[in-house]
Nucleic acid binder design. Sequence first.
DNA 1: TTCACATACCCAAGTTTCTTAGGTATATAT
DNA 2: ATATATACCTAAGAAACTTGGGTATGTGAA
Lengths: 110, 110
Amino acid sequence: MQKNQLYKGSLSTIVLKLLNDKGKMYGYQITREVEKITTGELVITEGALYPTLHKLEAKGLLSVEIKTVNNRPRKYYFLTENGKRETVNLLNEMKTFIQHMDVLLNPKLA
Amino acid sequence: MQKNQLYKGSLSTIVLKLLNDKGKMYGYQITREVEKITTGELVITEGALYPTLHKLEAKGLLSVEIKTVNNRPRKYYFLTENGKRETVNLLNEMKTFIQHMDVLLNPKLA
DNA sequence: TTCACATACCCAAGTTTCTTAGGTATATAT
DNA sequence: ATATATACCTAAGAAACTTGGGTATGTGAA
């Protein structure tokens, strides 16, 4: 999703958090929304997103609902109960990760 | 370095920043230092660290100096001029990454 | 003295996550 | 007609790890 390797591993967390806040979203909408929120700086490629959505569904964290809009099918994803619990876990892990980075990269002098 | 996928991609940044602050360090010492700083929470495996040190050296970001201490060889790594420049870049990328995560995971209400 | 543990280096096979580069198809604006 | 936006998808390869080894010395405890 970037030249930068740091984003590796954060995609599931981003997707789950978005669905947690918005309720239901479809894949293409997620890519648009992330670009909008980050003012175009973070672009999620479809080659990364769709396999991730399928993986989260296979794990039982997401469910799907297909709707046809403008003669095109849309797959709306939403969190299952397990998905809601896992979202909390992943957000905590992200918080811990950032704290660790802060300690390592901004050491207290003396 | 963790169960968690988030740390993937951050190892080079951590190593370069440590060397930037400490001057010279050897591999084993880096693993000890990171554990110490994070009070045991972040453990860098040797299977991850040594290939990373070799990669950074191959890229011209690190140089090596071998010393024998207690009848065992130690390989002290230190930043080259390019390494110093790249450290600044990677620290900025980490800062940007954390800002993006903040915007995505802690959206302003309304 | 033997046995574990810390120190100190290393590699190879496998996994996960992503990038790159495609493919299909409809609607709309130029 | 042609490009762009919308909307889904996959497969091959790259990168960064984990896991599980290997070698070897020094030290402390049973």
